[in-house]
Nucleic acid binder design. Structure first.
Length: 121
DNA sequence: CCATTGACTTAAG
DNA sequence: CCTTAAGCCAATG
């Protein structure tokens, strides 16, 4: 079989990466969360950078709404990694989230904390 | 195994 | 609000 490389990547990253993707997939439309919140929910609050690492590879997984993950200030720090820089902002506004100057407007009101919304598994 | 990197976060000035 | 610096940890070469 020739498609084993992609599968092996998935298998190798299954532990942490897949857990991150699971959480991101559960973010309700119109809500956002932060890298640190995801890391905290997964039990490793200091691995927020690893969550960003996982998101960098999330392009392979079409079900992951990466635009709903921002940094703890509500800044769209990952926008440069989309197909084009304004894509992230467009996707957010399409869900009713207002964005101004690369920042989520009323960030605390649209913030979705997986630790409160989800049961730990 | 060592050095570098990074879609983070916190603290300090 | 701005920039630096340090801590952090997995991936990458």
């Amino acid at each position: 079989m020739n498609g084993t490389s992609e599968i092996s990547i998935n298998a190798k990253n299954r532990d942490y990466f897949s857990s991150v993707y699971d959480v991101v997939r559960l973010i309700p439309p119109g809500k956002v969360t932060s890298y640190g919140a995801i890391a905290n929910f997964l039990g490793s609050a200091k691995s927020s950078r690893i969550v960003g690492w996982a998101m960098n590879a999330s392009h392979k997984f079409h079900d992951v709404p990466a635009h709903r993950v921002v940094n703890r200030n509500g800044l769209l720090t990952g926008k440069m990694h989309f197909e084009y820089p304004s894509k992230m902002e467009e996707l957010l506004k399409m869900e009713g989230i207002d964005v101004s100057e690369n920042r989520i407007v009323d960030f605390e009101n649209v913030f979705w904390d997986p630790s409160e919304a989800l049961q730990k598994f």
